[in-house]
Amino acid sequence: MHKYLMVSDTHGRDDNFYKVLDIEGKLDGIIHCGDFEGSEGKFAIAADCPVYFVSGNNDFFSTLKRELDFTLDGHRVFLTHGHMYLVSMDLENIRAEGMSRGAEIICFGHTHKPVAKTMGGVYVFNPGSLSYPRQEGRRPSYIILTIDGDRVDAEIKYL
């Protein structure tokens, strides 16, 4: 079994990211769905594991790609911030894009609201925001993604 941390929308407020690293311990990888606002280099150094990072709509000077397609433990992943797919309106555009790329797992941010569900045969995950949560209760959130063979599980966790 492999354990991945998924975060998003940290917006230069980094303390909660480091708290989560302490809480979660050993990780097999970190996925950041964008809107670092300058922290991506520090996060990559602190991670001590493989990282999968994309830029968001507020990462004006970032050299990160806007989208990544990669494989985790045999599962195809589509990673993007989400703003280009109108995720604040609904998730159909991002789901369709992920499926067109052959993704089994779609990871995005932008809305600052956590999501972990299956749509039309694909997993759709948004870790929410560690810095500026917008869901009811407004608690900073992240996702722990575990993959064990064919089994993919995502747990939304709160600070």
Rank of each mutant, 00 (worst) to 15 (best):
L5V: 03
C49D: 11
K157P: 00
C33G: 12
N58S: 11
Y132K: 10
D14A: 13
Y158P: 00
D35P: 03
V115T: 05
L86R: 15
K3C: 02
V77P: 02
H83R: 09
H32V: 01
A96L: 14
I147S: 08
E97V: 01
I23T: 12
Y123D: 03
H75V: 11
L68H: 13
I147Y: 12
Y132P: 00
P127A: 04
Y142I: 01
L86S: 15
V54L: 05
I45S: 14
T71D: 13
E104K: 14
T80M: 03
N93K: 15
D150W: 07
V7I: 15
I45W: 04
G121E: 03
A103G: 03
D150N: 13
I45G: 01
V54K: 13
F43C: 04
G56Y: 06
C33L: 04
G137T: 11
V152D: 07
S8P: 07
E40T: 02
N93Q: 14
D22R: 15
L91E: 13
H110T: 04
G82E: 12
Y123H: 15
F78W: 09
S141A: 14
S8C: 07
F17M: 07
P127N: 08
P50Y: 10
F53G: 03
A44W: 01
N16E: 13
D48A: 11
R139Y: 05
Y158A: 08
P133A: 13
G98Q: 11
V152S: 06
D69V: 09
P127L: 01
P114Q: 08
